[in-house]
Amino acid sequence: MSFWSITLFLWEGFRISLLIFAVTLLVGIPLGLPISFCSMSRVRPIRCAAKVFVWIIRGVPLMLQIFIIYYVPGLVFNYQLFGRVDKYFLLNYGIQDAGRIVAVLIAFAINYACYFSEIYRGGIESISKGQYEAGQVLGMTKKQIFFKVVLLQVIKRIVPPMSNEIITLIKDTALANCIMVAELIKQANTLAATKALIWPLFYTGVFYLLFVGILTVLLGRLEKKLSYFSS
């Protein structure tokens, strides 16, 4: 196999990695908001439930969460949820492994939403009470205070920790390997198993490095864009 064809073969896997990355961010970033609001709720049962949920999700390995989400519907409820998804996509669109990928996406989105929710909570709680009160005495509504006064300050504060999580996320996509999703590392493993080629496994590092490089530049720009004020 030529270097080029191996690159293309690995690229097929990296596309899956990028899909997991993108969907996790698209779902996880908004999903983190209600979780963080619940964990700051004045209603104790809601607050406690949110904290326990975040504790469990952050306290258990992501790989285990993928296993649980993938196997529990079949084992416990005797309902082959992801098998059906698989079949549906294969018959209708000719896409393979859709069920496994969906299971991974669910696990990733929930897991990352919990991490994001804690970052949001830290950001929101770090805004001084004085900002809210200044808005109040100027006759602003709670909603106006949140959106017009607090939000941008929160965003500015959470960009560095969010960047960290986002960079971790692209490398975490390799965990999808554990239920045989053909992401980048799995593709390289396939080459090792079928063609006795070990170097493509090391070559995968270049894909991650390049992507993280692009992310670093983009997130750095965002951080710089928000540096016009300090609070």
Partner: peptide
Amino acid sequence: GDAEIREKRLRFGLVFQNFNLFPQ
């Protein structure tokens, strides 16, 4: 209610010890 308090609040202005300007 919130709306009523808001309206009443407008009769008063308040300048804080640590300014509390909106930084952005």
